[in-house]
Design a protein around this nucleic acid. Structure first.
Lengths: 218, 218
DNA sequence: CCTACCGATCGGTAGG
DNA sequence: CCTACCGATCGGTAGG
């Protein structure tokens, strides 16, 4: 699929040109690995894990069919790496939000808005295929790997709980906090199925609508 | 997978015993077709379309590997039949709700509650694998079939619009109606990912939580 | 609906 | 990271 290869040019072009590597023999494996991950994320998202072949991925990264197995032990391992990378990045972004200087002094409503907005961007931003793959392809993981992913998801959700509890306490959120978290994140996660960046609504519009829908008043 | 075959015993046993068929030569093909659909729905939901083999499905329905193709032209056609059957049943149930004698005289809040409750049951009720397959495997359909499914989804969503518009007009729903519909149905649809019938919450609990979350007051 | 089978594709590997 | 390849599996079919 040459289209996919084209879409990944940017990732492949990120190879640093300035400082030369320590030894001539050290190929920039790190970057080929990154290109493989980006290609896998794009294809896993578009076609699903089982319908994507390792040959598809290799071609999208400009390699021969056997080469992905030089970087990853198996197709499974590639899927897990995509998910882990996606959740690592998402966690890091949300932690930055929560730990930002002014954040703690904001109202719970404003704090929820920031979480929602970053969540939408993690799901719908350009090139952000990693977390959608995690959301919709976990079924294809082996039990051990699925547990590790579940752990990351749990950490991610724990960032939401203090805000939701505060909103519940102040009467702005009436549903039980646990179910509210599942329903709210579900509403956001489902946007992966219908959001179209080229169409009407923006991530800002979605954030506004979600806040208006979930909160009793602003 | 003998486990799957066992789970499908009930469907296979529905074969009518009383009145004999018109001719001796008329095998109850209709029922073997039903068994295939139920087996396919269960497996497509559990493992996804691409990861399910037609041999899996045949075995779960108690057939040999080539036999599904006597009833369905292709694996694709089987997937489409599952989705069409699921949406036909869901539409029929929701139409019955909307057209029930007292329904029109209920408050918009109560009408939404009925739609939500039936929707949860369509997704989470025992043996209801057909609609979840439609929700999560449409990617595997061919363009023509996907269009037909989209048409059914559109009909289904149109049943919600009058209720949502009324709630918006009365101030019980603050988000724009179009985005509210997408977010609300997303919250409900995502329950397929986490709901566990053997655990704490019931469909009633979910319905209560959803109503409390979405509406400004009851 | 079964038997027997085909052609294509797939994940993965050896050896360089 | 490529070349060349293997064993297994898969969707689907002919002929009964």
């Amino acid at each position: 699929m040459t289209t996919d290869a084209a879409l990944l040019e940017t990732a492949a072009a990120k190879r640093p040109r300035g400082r030369p590597r320590k030894t001539v023999d050290e190929r920039d494996d790190g970057n080929r690995r990154v290109a493989l991950l980006a290609a896998a994320a794009l294809l896993f998202r578009r076609k699903g894990f089982s319908a994507t072949t390792t040959r598809d991925i290799a071609a999208a990264a400009g390699m021969q069919s056997g080469s992905p197995f030089y970087h990853f032990k198996s197709k499974d391992a590639l899927l897990f790496a995509v998910m882990e990378e996606g959740m690592r990045a998402a966690l890091s972004r949300q932690r930055a939000v929560v730990q930002a200087p002014g954040h703690a002094s904001l109202s719970p409503q404003s704090r929820l808005r920031e979480l929602v907005q970053v969540h939408f961007d993690v799901l719908l931003g350009p090139g952000n295929d990693f977390v959608p793959v995690m959301l919709y392809e976990s079924r294809s993981l082996q039990a051990r790997q699925r547990k590790l992913v579940a752990q990351l998801i749990s950490e991610y959700e724990s960032l939401w709980m203090p805000v939701l509890s505060a909103l519940h306490a102040s009467g702005h959120l009436r549903a039980p906090v646990g179910l509210a978290r599942l329903l709210i994140l579900g509403a956001l996660n489902w946007s992966v199925q219908w959001f179209d960046a080229k169409k009407g609504a923006s991530v800002q519009d979605l954030t506004d609508a979600a806040m208006a829908l979930f909160l009793k008043s602003d």
